[in-house]
């Protein structure tokens, strides 16, 4: 009797389990399985086809010895720091300005956010055109009479990553702004009233009370934007294709290059394992914090 009941119960939930198969397969086979596969094959000498010829850390040694890889890492670090700092601060400032009961708020918000609706390829192509030294912004300013003005970030090896960062920040700021605005709107109205009765100036209320209250929003925005930064690929392809030379290479492009163009799987897997490691370092503490906090409540 009880066995029969247990079976009926099992069967009754069976539809749900069958329906959840895509999710189960995706999480186990793709997210866990493929990641492990990649880590495992990073220790092999696989070239155009995966082989199980284990060579220890040799791929990693080569990776850390490669000038192009260290350039890619340096680039993503510069891009990442700039993007995070500017997207979060400018995003917050814009959100705070929009939160002052202004007219045309939705028009401003629409303008700040539309870049986020476009493809990185589109963004890259437009900014490439604006940075064009011969016909773009530099050309325009020189026409105004400033003959020696130079604004040629994109074709200079040392500055090309800043050109990409400007485009990337332009695209992502609206996203940060929307999250910040939602955070600001979630602040209890009575906190503002209390601070007015206390006679605290608005800017001081933001700095001393509101921003500390919004720590969670900042952390969430930071994690989401940071995870996007690690994936940076399309924008570079469209703007510079990694050039001049390899001056604007980034890890995602490096991996792609070694996977599909140079047919050196082992080396590409080592590089992507490093990317995975970076994400884990960012994510695990946050995930633990979020999940741990939820369990406590």
């Amino acid at each position: 009797m009880s066995a029969g009941r247990a079976q009926a119960f099992w069967l009754r939930n069976l539809t749900a389990k069958i329906a959840a198969i895509p999710m189960i397969l995706t999480s186990l086979v793709i997210f866990i399985g493929c990641s492990i596969w990649t880590v495992v094959y990073s220790f092999t000498s696989s070239r155009s086809l995966p082989v199980t010829d284990f060579v220890g850390f040799r791929q990693y040694e080569r990776l850390f010895g490669a000038h192009r890889w260290s350039l890619a890492v340096e680039n993503i670090a510069i891009y990442g720091v700039l993007t995070l700092v500017f997207a979060l601060t400018v995003g917050f400032i814009l959100a705070a300005l929009l939160d002052q009961k202004i007219r045309f708020e939705s028009i401003f918000r629409t303008i700040f956010l539309y870049p986020y609706a476009m493809s990185f390829i589109v963004t890259g192509v437009v900014w490439q055109w604006m940075f064009n030294p011969g016909l773009g912004i530099q050309h325009f300013v020189r026409q105004l009479g400033f003959e020696n003005f130079t604004f040629d970030l994109i074709s200079n090896r040392n500055t090309v990553i800043y050109a990409i960062a400007i485009a990337g920040i332009w695209q992502i700021t609206g996203f940060a702004m929307v999250l910040m605005l939602a955070g600001l709107r979630a602040v209890d109205d009575q906190i503002w009233k209390a601070s007015r009765v206390d006679g605290i100036p608005a800017w001081k209320t933001y700095v001393m009370i509101i921003i500390p209250m919004m720590r969670g929003v900042f952390v969430t925005s930071l994690v989401i934007i940071a995870a996007g930064i690690v994936k940076l690929y399309d924008l570079v392809v469209a703007m510079t294709n990694g050039g001049p030379g390899f001056a604007s290479d980034v890890p995602a492009m490096y991996v792609y290059n070694w996977l599909f163009e140079r047919a050196n799987l082992g080396h590409a897997m080592a590089a992507s394992t490093m990317m995975l490691l970076t994400v884990l370092i960012i994510m695990v503490p946050w995930f633990y914090m979020e999940y741990g906090r939820k369990n406590k409540n």
Binding site: C34, K231, V255, Y256, L265, M269, T273, V279, M283
Partner: peptide, 10 residues
């Protein structure tokens, strides 16, 4: 949050 590149080849 895992970069696509990690899962691309598999």
């Amino acid at each position: 949050f895992i970069p696509y590149q990690v899962m691309l080849y598999p």
